[in-house]
Design a binder for these strands. Structure first.
Lengths: 197, 197
DNA sequence: ACACAAAACTAACATTTGTTAGTTTGAAAA
DNA sequence: TTTTCAAACTAACAAATGTTAGTTTTGTGT
């Protein structure tokens, strides 16, 4: 799967470096606890120099979060129109989340915890995208229940259980010394779908 | 189940109010983005007046997080020594998490996202407690696998899947208009243990 | 060698931050 | 009534914050 974090040349290479370093700091302490001086120090330059490349601290956050949100939305859309049973689509969604986790674990932290500190407009757009994403996921689960492929349980509980596992996977993927991606996918799909008994 | 958030009279009633209001704000924006003036305003007093009751902003966080961490540790310990199969213990753990979520959803946010902003000593103690908690959980899962009660899957993946679902439950419990606790427990146990197919 | 642009720098700014010191208020105890 | 004390207040602090303005450095193409 191809995961382009931003369209070509939308940002200068230096800007991309800053965003990368910043996202790493954001993951450790959260957006609000990271100062522009922290980011500058990580880059080996002075705080004021950052402003040759970025417009504001908030802009870094917005680029991080909104780019990743679009990645999720695009992924969901292509899975939606793909052929396959609901269960196979859920499998694809799980694999997509794992791919994104492996490639963008830093940005995932910001998306999960710091989206509310973006400028108002982006917050609105973000929440809309997230709701649409969840609604699509919910529909797939309901289809699976209707077709008898999935046990007739509260769809909300299934949705929540899968999504919260996938959304916090980035926390574990770093701690547990980088498990092999394919092994992780296999085990994760098995546990989430077939359960443990 | 009895959930005492702090031992009797360790804090004055006014202090408890402050901690409650603060935890509500922490949940919305995170510890670092909440100022003592925000907390004061929520209390209807001036910022300086807070310091008649608390020692520092950090102290509020520490009380919140460490009290809740002890609650989890105590709960785990009493389940560990209880009689029952590993699977029954896991069921009890799930129910404990749900009880805590319902009663202390605010503090859970701080415990999940803001523990690293406590004073150094508390961070060390906290991480120790969390590691012990996870290790105990892991052992129960492994026992279940050995006894054949649980499918022979990567225990780490099972542990992670259950824990991340339970740890972020507080986010959904507020959004989805307060589901009935007993229904939630039943469905949650079913989905997490038996899976969806 | 020179011009130009990118990207660094220094210095400063207006706010915001957590916190302290000292004072006033109001209600209960004496 | 007077004393007392918790809990509010005002005023101010030093430090930290995001950001701007103006200047110097650095490297590249002519």
């Amino acid at each position: 799967m191809l995961l382009l974090s931003c369209s070509i040349m939308k940002h200068s290479s230096r800007k991309v470096e800053i965003i990368a370093k910043a996202s790493h700091l954001f993951k450790e302490k959260g957006y609000s606890a990271v100062t522009v001086r922290d980011i500058a120090q990580a880059m080996g330059i002075k705080a004021a120099s950052l402003y040759n490349h970025i417009q504001s601290k908030q802009e870094i956050l917005s680029v991080l979060v909104m780019d990743l949100a679009r990645t999720f939305t695009d992924g969901m859309n292509s899975i939606l129109v793909s052929k396959g049973t609901p269960l196979q689509k859920i499998e694809s969604l799980i694999e997509m989340h794992i791919d994104i986790t492996v490639n963008q674990s830093e940005a995932l932290a910001a998306l999960n915890n710091d989206w509310m500190h973006m400028p108002e407009d982006d917050v609105v757009a973000f929440v809309r995208m997230r709701e649409a994403y969840e609604e699509n996921f919910r529909k797939i689960i309901k289809q699976g229940i209707e077709s008898g492929e999935i046990k007739p349980r509260h769809p909300e509980v299934i949705l929540f259980s899968i999504l919260s596992t996938l959304r916090t996977l980035y926390l574990w993927y770093q701690k547990r010394g980088k498990l092999d991606v394919n092994v992780l996918k296999r085990d994760m799909v098995a546990v989430l779908i077939e359960g443990m008994v």
